[in-house]
Computed example of a mutant assay.
Amino acid sequence: MAGLAFEHLAVNVGDPVAVAEWYVTHLGMTVVRRGDAPAHMHFLADASRRAMIEIYNNPVARADLYRDLHPVQLHVAFTSADPDADTERLVAAGAVLVEHQRHPDGSHLVMLRDPWGLPIQLARRAVPMM
């Protein structure tokens, strides 16, 4: 059996237009596709164009539950060459710092929450994952 290729992770949010704009402006993501009301879906590609997040609104499910989740339950991770500088920049843009993790192998992980509460992680790994 051939393996399946990952396409995207979908995230239901209250204000997809604002969330997508923040991710484009502050995380360097690119809008690949967008849709109009009522869902205002935005497919956002990362800088490598190997992964996508769909940001949208669907009122049949809660859009505010991310603040209730511990970041180890769910987070969106980004690689960072300088987690300290990126953390400072993102906090200035409205993100909230949760914690820094510095590991004995030299890896540096930072957990934050975007301005809407969705956990994001910045990762500088001693040995890259991919």
Rank of each mutant, 00 (worst) to 15 (best):
Q73R: 11
M29H: 01
T30F: 05
N57M: 05
V24E: 12
I53N: 03
V127E: 14
V60A: 13
S48N: 11
A20F: 02
A18E: 15
A92K: 14
R50W: 07
H70R: 11
A37E: 15
Q101D: 10
D86S: 06
M1C: 04
R67W: 12
H108L: 05
P59Q: 11
H103G: 01
S80D: 03
L74M: 15
V72S: 12
V127P: 03
F78I: 02
D64H: 05
H26L: 01
I120C: 06
H70A: 13
H108N: 07
L9D: 03
P71L: 07
A85E: 13
L90A: 02
M29P: 03
R124H: 13
P119D: 02
L69H: 13
W22K: 01
E88A: 15
V110Q: 05
E54L: 10
M29T: 05
L90N: 03
D15S: 10
V91F: 03
R125G: 00
G3V: 05
R113K: 03
V11C: 14
L109E: 08
W116G: 02
A47S: 14
Q73Y: 10
H100W: 05
A2Q: 13
G28D: 05
D46S: 12
P71Y: 12
P104E: 14
Q101I: 14
R49C: 10
Q101V: 14
A45P: 05
M111C: 06
